[in-house]
Each structure stands twice: as C-alpha cells, then as structure tokens.
Amino acid sequence: MGPAAAAAAAARPQKASAAGGVPARWVCALCASCFVFGVFVINRIWSVPEPVKLNEKALFVERTQTRLSEVYIPCQRKQNSIHIGEILNHVSQTHDVIMTLDKTISNLEMRLAAARAARATKQEKSLISADSDIELSKVRPKVFFVMGIITAFSSRKRRDSIRETWMPHGENLRRLEKEKGIVVRFVIGHSGTRGSLLDHTVDAEDEQYSDFLRLDHVEGYHELSSKTLIYFSTAVAIWDADFYIKVDDDVHVNIGVLGSTLARHRSKPRIYTGCMKSGPVLAKQGVKYHEPEYWKFGEEGNKYFRHATGQLYAISKELATYLSVNRRLLGFMVHRSQCGAHR
C-alpha cells in the first residue's frame, strides 16, 4: 500500500466522525432551552409555598381582628344603648315638664280670661240682669259641654223636629244636665222692635219647653256671625263648661257619639274641632261673595285659612273665653260660609 492509500485510510474515520456529529448551533440552542427549563422548574418549586404561607398568615390576622371586633362591638353597642336611653329619659322628663307648665299657664289664662269675660258681660246690657250676672259669674255650674242650637223666629218646625228626635225636653232635659253635664239650648235674639208678636211667640214657646237661651241681639241673616260670638260670650258667663258647641237647627246630632268624641280631647287645651274646610278669597268686584278685605289674605287667588264648617263645631273653654274677652276686637269676613271671625 502506497503512501497515498495510507493517507486516504487515515482520513476516512475523521470524515465519518464529522458526518455523524451535532452542529454547534443546535448545541447552543439546546443549552439555552435547558437553562430556561431549569429556571422555570426552580421558580415553580419555590414560588408555590410562598403564597400559601402568606394566605395563611393573612387569614390568621383576619380571624384575630374579627375576634377582637366581636368583643369590641357589643361593648360599643351597650354603651350606645345606655347613652340613647339616657337621652330618651331626659327628653321624656322635659316633655312632662313642658306639659305641666302648659297646663298651668292655660289654667291661669283661663282664670284671667274668665274674670275679664265676667266684667265685660256686666258692662253689656244683656237680658240677664246685672245682679244675677254677678252672681252667676262667681258660681257658674260646672258642666261637660254647652250646645247652642242657632235658630230663628221662622224655624218653629225645625225646633219641633229636633225635640221629637234627638233633643230631650222637659224633665229629661234637666236630667241630662244634672247627670251628664250636657246643656242643650235653642239660641235666639229679639226682633228689631222689642215686644213684637215675634218676641211674644218665642216667649210662649220658651214658657212651654224652657229650652231657650235668649241673647241681647237683633235677629237677622247678615248678623249670624255676630250672633254666634254673643252666644259664646253669654254661655261662658253662665256655665263653666269644658266645651262650647255651635250647631244649626237643620242638623240632627247624635249626642252620645259627640260626647264620646269630645271626651277624648278633654285634657287638651285650646281645642277647635269640626268638619274642616277652606275656600278661595274672591277679590274681583261685582261677583257674588266678593271679599272687600281680600288683601289681608295675600295675593289674588289665595284661600281663607282652614276652619270648621259652620253647621257644627266645638271649641274648648280657653278659646270660648278668648272670644268672649276679645269680641270687640274681632272683625268678620263677608263670605261667612267660607270664614267667620278673624283677628
């Protein structure tokens, strides 16, 4: 074998080794992949327990805070409840004191107003004589309520209908006053000419039934508000009642229901009760029920203040006494069905 053949034989194994090897680029890529995989595996192994430990620690802290708050909140609620209870107790005591003072003031006002009413009544020339008026003002009979039925000379049939239905007469009327403290009277004044046939007719009817309250007042349709004021003033001077009632002679009353209703308000001062209503103030001239003093109620289109309808309403002793004392200071609205007296 010559030198050329020997060189060829020596070169063959090296060529085969080169042909069966891995390229350098692949080796680098494989190394990089192994490095990334190793980093991923290491992070995966060591990062999982850490959140678990943190979650356990956070859960422990949260449970501890919850237990502390459960202990603290009941104590705070107890303190708040004690504080609120003390406040309510003070409010209740203050309310009781205010109510007591209010009753005391109302009682003093009532006594003062009653004295003024008695003096004002003495100065007026009513049908009750001066001597008897002084005596009655000192020893007025105490009653539950006085009901005045506003009537007229021409209403004899209405009065008879009332006597036959809901109003007792004769001895039964006196028994109602004595046992129940309920006084019921027909209220009427006198004619423009004293001693006329109209007056004699009412005198005869009163002698028969003894159920009239005569006023020093000239009867007339346009004087009904003034008549009502005189009625309250006269009734206050004669009877010491808890309530004074005005009712028209075309209204039939259930005395039992009315008495039960008023009894619920007996301890309250300054009561004004009835079927409440209101109505527009008519400022335009020339229309029916035009109100000359419409400006007292504000701008055009306003309404009268809310008040009880005139067919039936009741006022307490304090209000009746106030009307009696201040009747000369009170004016009247033209539209009497919407509004009566005003100050």
Rank of each mutant, 00 (worst) to 15 (best):
L127W: 08
G85T: 03
G189C: 03
W239E: 02
V183T: 01
L213I: 01
A314I: 02
A152S: 14
D133M: 12
A120N: 15
W166S: 06
A152F: 15
F145V: 03
I73W: 11
S81H: 10
P51S: 05
R25C: 01
A5P: 00
L101W: 09
G2H: 07
V139I: 06
K103A: 11
Y272M: 06
D203M: 11
V251Y: 10
L197V: 05
G189W: 02
E219V: 04
A152C: 11
L323D: 00
T121G: 15
A113E: 00
G195W: 07
V61R: 15
E207P: 01
A113M: 06
A115C: 10
Q65E: 12
L319D: 04
G85K: 07
R44L: 06
P49G: 02
L30E: 14
T309Q: 13
H169W: 11
K122Y: 10
L213F: 11
S337E: 11
N254M: 05
H190A: 05
Q208Y: 08
L68W: 12
A10V: 05
P280Y: 05
F232I: 03
A118L: 04
L224A: 06
V184E: 07
T94S: 13
P292N: 04
N55A: 13
H265R: 07
N43V: 04
T228P: 00
A320P: 01
L323I: 10
E86T: 07
V139S: 14
M1G: 13
G195Y: 09
P280C: 04
I105M: 12
V41G: 08
W26S: 12
S126Y: 05
S210E: 14
W166E: 05
N80M: 11
E62S: 13
G259Q: 14
V143R: 11
L323V: 06
H252G: 01
Q79G: 03
W26N: 10
F153D: 02
I128T: 07
H265Y: 14
V251M: 12
K303E: 09
A5Y: 09
H342M: 00
E219M: 07
S154G: 05
S260E: 11
H290L: 03
A320W: 05
K288Q: 09
T104P: 00
E56L: 10
G148I: 01
T64G: 09
I128L: 15
G298Y: 04
R119N: 05
Y304E: 01
V36S: 15
A152Q: 14
M167G: 02
A341E: 06
V247M: 07
R175C: 00
S324T: 03
I315W: 05
G259W: 00
T234Y: 03
L258G: 03
L197W: 06
H217R: 03
V247T: 07
P13G: 03
L329I: 02
R111Q: 14
P141A: 08
S267E: 15
C275Q: 10
I162F: 08
I134V: 09
S47P: 00
E179P: 04
T151P: 09
L330T: 01
K57D: 08
I84D: 14
S337L: 09
V202K: 04
A341Q: 07
